[in-house]
Each structure stands twice: as structure tokens, then as C-alpha cells.
Design a protein around this nucleic acid. Sequence first.
DNA 1: TATTGTTATACTCTATAACTATA
DNA 2: TATAGTTATAGAGTATAACAATA
Lengths: 157, 157
Amino acid sequence: MVSTPAVESDLGWALGVVFRGYVRAAEGVLADLPGGPRGYQVLTSATAGEACSQQTLAHRLGLDKTVMTYLIDDLERSGLVERRPDPADRRARLLSATDVGKARLAETTESLRGVEEQVLAPLAAPERDLLRDLLRKLATRQDNPVDPCAEAEPRPC
Amino acid sequence: MVSTPAVESDLGWALGVVFRGYVRAAEGVLADLPGGPRGYQVLTSATAGEACSQQTLAHRLGLDKTVMTYLIDDLERSGLVERRPDPADRRARLLSATDVGKARLAETTESLRGVEEQVLAPLAAPERDLLRDLLRKLATRQDNPVDPCAEAEPRPC
DNA sequence: TATTGTTATACTCTATAACTATA
DNA sequence: TATAGTTATAGAGTATAACAATA
């Protein structure tokens, strides 16, 4: 009668287990990257030129703006990203990845592919793709518009 | 060229956004329940009689054993659960939900169903079920065996 | 006056280790 | 000696608020 534990029907429980499992699995790969998983996400955005302002990036990544400051401090100290005043609004900082940062991102991304496959390993291949798609769809729609700078839309960044 | 942000292909990013989204959405419902989302999970397990020992429960829920102590302290102070020494091993505590706790759980579970639907709202109905199934499948397999007490199996709990 | 980013402070959460009681 | 649980302490992580520069 205990064959199907009650917690398992809780979406929050499943999400938590999977999320923690991913973070734990990615720890090895992201350990020496400043900021860990979040540093990786910032570096990704900086490389893709999506870092219009620290604040919009912070919102997109689900972080506090003060955390974003520390995070970028560390990444900049390691020579992975640079920030300079936005000529159009000198209060804001434009974030960009250095060549070193881009190379580092490429390596890390490659390693993370392996981690993701490892985390999703209990599922069959088509299920893995399905889960990826569903999560991405949910994340993008629940979060905010697709355009990274669409919130305060004075210019396309 | 900025139409598909780079972070969005990162499984970790999607998981984080969805997980945080769920936690935020559930906050209202779980605010006055001691321990929040984790208190809810403990209460669920206690009601279902899956709380063979605090330690196995802690592992199942992804918590430290010390955190489990505080969590149960709060739930017990609120009269939702009880713990008493396991007659078969008086070092361990058997956790059970009180009648008040069971009633509270029923209410909360009902409210959470609504929250889950709200979180999954961006998906079509069949996609929602699919995502639930995939997450549960992944969580149960990645976590540990189905039997809640299968780790140290001296007796079936 | 409002906003971006920084800094300083305080608070919460979590992990570590020491302790008790049982085995 | 080893384990379940508790307690105390310390550390990391996080949020709050005050500040500087720019709009």
C-alpha cells in the first residue's frame, strides 16, 4: 500500500528533485567558473549580446540586481567579461564577453551537454527532447516576452 | 538576430525559471504553513505513513537531517504532526500527521492543484499531463527506488 | 524626481561539528 | 563502535536600504 508515495504526485516535489539533481550534476563542470550556474548564464547572455542592462539581465535570470553586481565583479576579475557605460544611457552598463570568456563559454557549454544527457538519462531519447521542449516553452512564456529587451523598449538594444 | 536568446537552449536555465515560478506561485498558498513547500512535503509524507525515519525522509526530500529537525519542530508546535519513538528502534522517531494536520493537508493540496494549473497554464492540456509525467518519471528514477524505505531495509516500515 | 548600478548592513538559510540516547 | 536525532556555532547566500551618477 506504500507502493506509490504520496509526494510523487506533487509537481513541486518533482521539480525540486530534478532541479537539484541538475545543479548537483553540473557542479563539477561549473565549479571553477566564477558564479557557478548563474555565472554561466551571465556569460552566455554576455556572449550573445543580450546584456542590454544589468537589471534586465538580472530579471531574466531571476536574480537580485545586487547579486548581479557581485556576479559580474567576479567574472570581470577573471577576465571573462567586460562592462562599459552604455553611450546612449551612461547610467547603464553594456556587458560583453572577452575572447577568453567566449572560449571558456564554448568549452563549458560542450561539457554541459554531457551533464544534461546524464541528468536526462533515465528517459528515452524522444522523451528527453520532449521534456526539453516543454520546459523551454513553459519557461519562455511564463517568464516574459521572447525579445530580451522588450520590457522597457526605448531601443532594441 | 536576437530573436532566440542563447540562454533559452540551456536546460538549467529553463529548469530554474520553471522551478522558481512554481515556488513563487505556491508562496501564497503555503505562506502560513510552517516550513512552506518543504513543510507541505513533510506533512504529505507523514499523512501517507511514509515517514519511517526522519533521516530517510530527509534524503527523499533532498534536505539535511538538521533542517528536518527544525521543520518537524515547527509542524509539531503547530499541532500538525506528532513524533514518538519507534518501538522497534527507539533512536528513530515515527512521524504521523494529526487529524488537524490531515485536514490542513487536504485543504492545502486542493489549493495547490489550482496553483499547479496556473503554473502550467501556458501549455495545452495534453502537454501539461505530459510534462507532469516526464518530471515524475525523471524524479523517481533519478532519486531512488520507489519503495520509500528501501534503503536500509531491515523491515518494511 | 526617477532610474542604473554600487556599497554596506542585516538577515535567513544552510552546513559543520559536537552532544545525547539508543543499538 | 555506530547510528538517529538534537543542539550550537559558523559560514554562505540573500535581501534591505542608503548612496552616487545620470536621466
